[in-house]
Design a protein around this nucleic acid. Structure first.
Lengths: 205, 205
DNA sequence: CACAATTATGAGCAAATATTCAGATCTTGA
DNA sequence: TCAAGATCTGAATATTTGCTCATAATTGTG
């Protein structure tokens, strides 16, 4: 068990190509192992084994197990915010329904590749103060943007846009997580349609 | 680490008053510790310490750590289904809006006392085959009832009641968990109002 | 009070697992 | 080619933690 949870920074920076490759392999293996076994049962030795490297190499690039989780979460958050930013720079559709569709699709796509991993991340990550803060910040940003959107759109008729924005974000994120990770997952397209319908009818009042 | 995960039954039945008291203290302490540290970091020694008893006493009433979790989850599920059954025996309101309000309020109330504990329960349940099955059964029952409700109600206009029922259940459950467990939780009454509005407008088409 | 049954104690065992480090192997650049 | 630095190895070590058991304390009963 880790005795010093504060270290998150990598032990050394890769300077050769094979080092960067090893780092990638570790992360890929960790994603698989964490997704399959959960965080606690996803041991560092198992990760190293799956990555085809020795346990020592793993600790050359990650100071401890938590750091691997942190890196995976960071990448997910960065990917998500980057995708959202890209959409926000371009022109958005006019109707609130189509706007919602864009973002719901974004959320669904972001979770389609490995729902189990993402679910594990959300469940396990918040144990660390730092990660909790990071996730909270991203979420608050999303809620803020959603609120702006709701307030500026002529079709929207909800009174309390602050609460509505939080409800919208939580609904999209969590329902996506849950439904995609079930043993019998809902068809992604159908989920998208129903969720867009629900949100649209909600904010139109 | 536990070598035999199958044992769930208590080691012995309490025969004296102080024994039953000790059992209660263990469960209360476990709820606190699990909610605060998570399941993995909530060690049995910490639970015993918080309960003000020795670690040996803990193992006199629970064969292993999982059994404590199972007992907590069982109590939650039993409480929930009992409350739901009580509501279902009586007369339900006519309007779909008021029906939703009854069930959303039920869900909110069931999670108001200790959102962190309940969140942990839902997250950790998938570790055990038995608990997973138990939770799945309860959920399927709820979805089934919801579907019946949607199909039999004149106000409802959604086409795919199966998908709609799953979406409704997932939304209520997860949004409640998430919003109440935040560092800055939404006012329970406001959450109830908005969620009822969202669900009602959704199923009315 | 005496005796048995019940309950409580907590040091310590055993297994799992995170992490280290001394030495081997590979890559780079001159 | 070769030395220096980078990378890799994995047996060994350090911790953590679920759990046991011999013993002590308490309670119920005649």
């Amino acid at each position: 068990m880790p005795s010093d949870q504060r270290r998150i920074q990598p032990r050394k920076q890769p300077r050769q190509v094979r080092a960067e490759l090893t780092r990638q392999r570790i992360l890929t293996a960790a994603a698989h192992v964490f997704a399959g076994h959960g965080y606690a049962a996803g041991t560092t030795n198992r990760i190293a084994e799956r990555a085809g490297i020795s346990i020592g190499s793993l600790y050359q690039y990650f100071p401890n197990k938590d750091a691997i989780l942190a890196e995976l979460l960071t990448r997910h958050l960065d990917d998500g915010t980057a995708a959202a930013a890209k959409v926000l720079t371009g022109p958005l559709p006019d109707s609130i329904e189509e706007i919602f569709r864009v973002f719901v699709r974004l959320a669904v796509e972001a979770h389609l590749d490995d729902p189990h991993l993402l679910r594990m991340l959300i469940e396990q990550a918040p144990r660390s103060e730092e990660l909790l803060e990071r996730v909270g910040r991203v979420k608050r940003t999303m809620v803020g943007h959603t609120r702006d959107l709701l307030e500026g759109h002529p079709e929207v008729r909800v009174a309390d846009t602050a609460t509505a924005a939080r409800l919208v974000i939580a609904t999209v994120e969590l329902a996506v997580h849950d439904l995609l990770a079930e043993p019998d997952p809902i068809d992604a397209r159908r989920l998208e349609d129903e969720m867009v319908a629900m949100l649209t009818r909600y904010v139109r009042g």
